[in-house]
């Protein structure tokens, strides 16, 4: 087993199952900031009330060595049950949701609605001069949609960050 390649950067979607206790998110975030790791996206929410567990999904990037280090560092946090590198452990689905506010009238407004339709975005709020679109999908799909809205009156974006899960019968 040769050591991991220390030059090539890769992105990793890491899911962490943790005890839902106060300070646990601070431990995880503090680990990333304190050791200089990147956080490209972060989501956290309780997933199992009976067991008192939350799931943190982190999208990070680094060399293979750094990503292995991130996983090892996460694993040794006391309230951490399981660390899964979804990018490495087989196929997974990753989705995020965005709420996108677009202001405009006339042609731009019509065009934004047309594009939203082709992206299967839903209109969740409307006024005479505004739309709020709700769009769910992979990060790059959301990026593309937001870019298209930019010249059409893009005013505000709120994104959830990535939620991810392994495909098939595998569980964390």
């Amino acid at each position: 087993m040769p050591g991991p390649d220390n030059h090539q950067l890769r992105s990793a979607t890491i899911s962490v199952l943790v005890d839902n206790e106060s300070g646990v998110l601070a431990r995880v975030i503090g680990l990333f900031s304190g050791r200089g790791y990147n956080i490209d996206s972060l989501t956290v929410a309780p997933v199992d009330d009976a067991r008192g567990q939350s799931r943190i999904n982190v999208v990070t990037s680094g060399t293979e060595m750094v990503i292995e280090q991130i996983k090892a560092q996460l694993e040794r946090l006391v309230p951490v049950h399981r660390v899964a590198d979804l990018t490495r452990e087989g196929a997974h689905v990753a989705r995020e949701m965005a709420l996108v506010k677009v202001l405009g009238t006339g042609d731009a407004r019509v065009e934004s609605l047309r594009i939203a339709d082709s992206f299967r975005a839903r209109v969740v709020d409307t006024t005479i001069e505004s739309f709020v679109f709700e769009l769910t999908g992979a990060t790059d799909k959301l990026d593309a949609f937001i870019e298209l809205m930019r010249p059409l009156g893009l005013a505000e974006v709120s994104r959830t960050g990535v939620a991810a899960i392994a495909r098939g019968s595998r569980t964390i």
Binding site: P2, P4, Q69, A72, Q73, R76
Partner: peptide
Amino acid sequence: IDPSSINKTVPVDVA
């Protein structure tokens, strides 16, 4: 005993 100490700065052949 600490997996995070392995391959942290120096890649190794047997861990």
